[in-house]
Structure formats: C-alpha cells, structure tokens
C-alpha cells in the first residue's frame, strides 16, 4: 500500500495556542502505546473533508519519550487548499483519524558537538521534539526563534522557562532580527545547523552559512511545501491507461488517487522523493515546485513530483 504503515488514532484534545495555531493531541484507538519516534519526524494526517481526501504532513512536537500520545500544531492558512482549515474547523475531541507512521526527513546528526537551531513561526514544531530528545539523552543546543509578534510566538514561554540560557526569541513587530553573521561566526567546530521556517528564512540562513564556509553536510533544513493551487490540467497515465484532469485546488497525486491509481508517496510536500515519476511525453511546461529534483532534472522535464508539481500546456504523459 502506498504511504506505508498506518495508525488508527482518536483525537484526545484540541487546544487553541493563539489566534492562528491549534494543537491536536492523538492517542491510539486501542489505548496502546504509539510507536516511538525521533525528534524532527512528521506524520501525515488523513482527513475526510466532506468527501475530499486530504493528506497533510505535520511535524510531531511532543516528546519522543512519550508514547502515550502524539501532538502536532497546525497553523491556519485561510488562503490554502483547505487542510489546515479542516483541522481548525472540523476536528474535535473524540474523532477517529488515521495517521502515517512517523517519518523523519529532518533528524539530528547525533555526532554533532553542538546543535544550532533556527526557527521561524510554526517552524518551531520539529525543534520542540528535538529539544525534548536532547534533554533526555544529553546534547548541547541553542535555539534562535523568530515570530511575528509576542502573541504569535507559540511555545516561547515553555521553552524559555525550561532553557533560559539556550533559547533566544525575536519579534518582527519589534524590529528584532537574528544577528546571523555573528551567530554563524562564533560557533564551535563540529556544530550542526538546523533551520525550519518560511522559505525566505531558510534561503537566508543556508546561503549565509555556505558563504561563510560552513560544511554543506553540517547544514540541515526542512520545508514542507503546500501543493499550491493552479489552473486545471489534463494528464495521461501510461501504466494505468487513464486520462485524468487535475482540479484547481487538487494536486496531481490527489487526482491520481481519486481516479483509483495507487501511486507511491511519503511526505506529500516535495521533500522526500518517494513519488518521483518518469515523464514519457511533455508538450508544454512542467511547473516544478519540489525541492527533491535537481535544477538540471527540472530543466530536463523527464521527471515530475506529483505531490506538488503541476503542468501547463498541451500533453503530459507520465509513467504511472
């Protein structure tokens, strides 16, 4: 089955964190322990949004040592395709849902002498689990966490209370910014850098670090892309002999699934590479939106990541 092993869970509680963010707590339907996981892992939440199947990845933020429940935080995106709105409006305690087993595309490098973490907004969630893991097993870390305002700085209170000297907060509204060049210049040898947040922040941090000579293998980031919307387009599926139309707010992967085609996937956010599909014919332009394929592969148009990428043009035939 595509997407790997699944977990049946019940929503234990839904907690508003601020105006934009709600926290969801899941327990196993049969009351047993949930699988252990590693800090930085995510789960894909399956939603039945009034007949539309939505699968969105969310970082696990609870302590990896706690197998009694999983927690995620969801930021409401009023302009999005509807997954976060469904979570905010329709998911209530007692509901039964399906999650994927945890998958980690953003793990700590456990050889690191020090972990330097940089978070922007909702990008804080994987770090919460990673910090809990480091608390348990030991490990030096420092977190720099930027949010729009004090009100929107989710979990800042608990982080600063538990780690007053390791957690540093910044607020856009107060014109505070991370002094990145000083921060990156003053780290001990063997430090690994992790960044999770908006695309602009990730690019800023990674390009600064590379320009300052940080080893590429010491730089880690995670960015889930929402599939994004676009004009409808038609795709021919060579292996299954079907022609499908991808709707405005639908991804190509979702359209294949709706047509009964069992396509592989894991993260559904353009990051993991699992859904990579060969392109047989492309008369038009593939709108590559993943960060799995290389720029050369994007230019060659011989492969597509159906979880996030779209198409404009006359004919697209893919090997699925």
């Amino acid at each position: 089955m595509s997407g790997g092993a699944k977990l049946r869970v019940r929503v234990d509680s839904v907690t508003p964190v601020n105006d934009l963010i709600k926290r969801f707590r899941f327990v196993a339907l049969d009351g047993s322990d949930l699988p252990a996981f590693s800090g930085g892992a995510h789960t894909v939440v399956e939603m039945d949004d009034h007949g539309t199947r939505r699968l969105n990845p969310y970082s696990l933020m609870s302590s990896p040592a706690d197998r009694s429940a999983y927690e995620i935080s969801v930021r409401r995106d009023d302009q999005g395709r509807g997954g976060s709105l469904f979570m905010h409006r329709h998911v209530t305690p007692g509901m039964e849902m399906t999650l994927s087993y945890p998958v980690n595309l953003f793990p700590l490098d456990t050889r690191a002498r020090k972990h330097l973490m940089i978070a922007g907004g909702i990008g804080i969630t994987p770090f919460l689990a990673q910090i809990a893991q480091l608390d348990q097993f030991g490990g030096r870390f420092e977190l720099h966490y930027a949010a729009r305002s004090r009100v929107l700085g989710a979990y800042m209170d608990r982080l600063t209370a538990a780690h007053p000297s390791q957690v540093h907060c910044y607020f856009d509204e107060e014109n505070q910014a991370i002094d990145l060049s000083r921060l990156l210049a003053t780290q001990p040898i063997g430090t690994h850098l992790y960044v999770c947040g908006p695309k602009g922040m990730i690019n800023w941090v990674l390009s600064s670090a590379e320009a300052m000579g940080w080893p590429r293998l010491a730089l880690h980031h995670e960015e889930f892309l929402a599939p994004g919307t676009g004009l409808p387009f038609e795709v021919q599926l060579a292996a299954s002999g079907k022609t499908i139309t991808v709707g405005t707010t639908q991804s190509l992967l979702e359209a294949m699934e709706a047509a009964g085609v069992d396509a592989p996937y894991l993260c559904r956010g353009g990051a993991c590479g699992q859904c990579e599909t060969n392109v047989h014919k492309c008369d038009g332009k593939i709108l590559h939106r993943d960060h799995w394929l290389s720029p050369e592969e994007h230019a060659a148009n011989a492969k597509i990541m159906p979880c996030v990428s779209r198409f404009e043009g006359k004919t697209l035939v893919i090997d699925r």
């Binding site: 790997g4 092993a5 699988p35 996981f37 087993y101 945890p102 998958v103 894991l266 993991c272 590479g273 699992q274």
Partner: peptide, 11 residues
C-alpha cells in the same frame, strides 16, 4: 540505497 533511505518504521 534510494529504496532504503525511504524505509519506514513499521514496514
């Protein structure tokens, strides 16, 4: 290698 990097817990 590509296959194993995608290996999932529970599977």
């Amino acid at each position: 290698l590509k296959f194993l990097l995608k290996l999932q817990h529970g599977a």
